[in-house]
């Protein structure tokens, strides 16, 4: 395997990890705000305090890992994406700050404030929305290369149906992933009310999820037919993803084996996410930048990969410890500790 592909695979894996665990985080915040507004308060607040607060900084590192890693492995991305993403990413940073400060100010601080909880919930949906725009940009057609550098055409970006399909998918995926996970977590905590509520949300968002995902493939037909062809070549990966989705929903409907629902959920998104990633190869930014053009020198690549392996060896046991203490410790989840 060439260094380019190895580097990209590592980064894509971290991005996948971030998408999954951050979605749980974002969705929980939204459901929490929603239930506060509709008076079903405190069902989720406890879950957020006991599961999300200890790990949000860890979640955030996955994102940092991705963008530091991509500049390390593919320095040209800093030039292309850095020049055009100033506004969307700055907005994302401000939304991230709202979320980070919520954890600091509300859960460690003394009292809760409804307005803040509401902002926290909404920012959890706007944040993935603003970042998912990057995926639309990477499909090409929105960037013009001029003498003074790449320039983003905001008008065509925000009038493109493709952009909006991707944004909607990001938001719906957040709500769905989060609801499925929290159904399982609440069930483990023995909180029947919360379980039923989250199960209901999960089933509500299952259909829009599949509809928007299909919609994007349809949009690509007009926007980037080359990419669509590559996606069709990988039809079997998307098919497996869909089967996992059906299985996950089945267990939710049958109200049993929520653990399997979550496992299949991860499988579903893993297959779809990697299939999408593979289908984009070799482009980092269609059609201007490929993984081969943008790649760093071999010395740096080898050092980065070495550090990555060493770091990974240190991280896995530590992450395992976190999971054991906060996610799989029955007494902690149930609030006895």
């Amino acid at each position: 395997m060439s260094y380019e592909i190895l580097g990209m695979a590592v980064l894509w894996t971290f991005l996948f990890g971030y998408v999954m665990i951050a979605s749980i985080d974002f969705g929980a915040g939204f459901f929490n705000a929603y239930s506060k507004l509709t008076g079903k308060e405190h069902i989720l607040t406890k879950v957020i305090q006991r599961y999300l607060s200890p790990v949000w900084e860890i979640t955030n590192v996955f994102l940092v890992f991705f963008f530091v890693g991509i500049v390390g492995f593919f320095p040209s991305t800093a030039y292309y994406y850095g020049s055009v993403l100033l506004v969307p990413v700055s907005i994302a940073l401000i939304l991230l700050a709202i979320r980070g400060s919520y954890y600091a100010f509300e859960t460690y601080g003394p009292t809760g404030h409804n307005g803040y909880a509401f902002m926290y919930g909404v920012s959890g949906l706007l944040f993935p929305a603003s970042l998912s725009v990057v995926f639309a940009i990477s499909e090409g057609g929105f960037i013009e290369i001029t003498d003074s550098g790449p320039i983003l055409d905001y008008w065509s970006l925000f009038t493109s149906p493709l952009t909006w399909s991707i944004v909607v998918l990001a938001v719906v995926a957040v709500l769905y992933i989060s609801a499925v996970f929290l159904t399982w977590y609440a069930d483990k905590a023995g909180d029947t009310n919360a379980t039923n509520l989250m199960r209901k949300y999960a089933l509500i968002w299952a259909v829009p999820l599949i509809v928007t995902a299909g919609g994007i493939i349809y949009e690509l037909r007009w926007h980037n037919p080359d990419h669509l062809e590559l996606i069709i070549d990988l039809w079997w990966m998307f098919a497996i993803s869909f089967i996992f989705f059906i299985g996950s929903v089945y267990f939710l409907i049958k109200k049993k084996n929520y653990g399997w629902s979550v496992t299949l959920l991860f499988g579903q998104f893993a297959f779809a996410f990697y299939a999408y990633g593979i289908s984009k190869y070799p482009y980092l930014l269609y059609p201007h930048l490929t993984v081969n053009d943008g790649f760093t020198n071999d010395t740096m690549a080898i050092s980065l990969i070495t550090v990555f392996i060493l770091g990974f060896v240190m991280l896995v046991p530590s992450l395992y410890l976190v999971f054991r203490l906060f996610l799989f410790d029955k007494r902690y989840i149930q609030g006895d500790k």
């Binding site: 900084e57 860890i58 955030n60 590192v61 940092v64 890992f65 530091v68 890693g69 500049v71 390390g72 492995f73 320095p75 760093t296 740096m300 050092s303 980065l304 550090v307 990555f308 770091g311 240190m314 991280l315 530590s318 992450l319 410890l321 976190v322």
Partner: peptide, 16 residues
Amino acid sequence: ALPLFMEVFAFFFEAI
């Protein structure tokens, strides 16, 4: 890029 990358790991460790 190497120390930038390592910094993320160090912080990862610290955060955990």
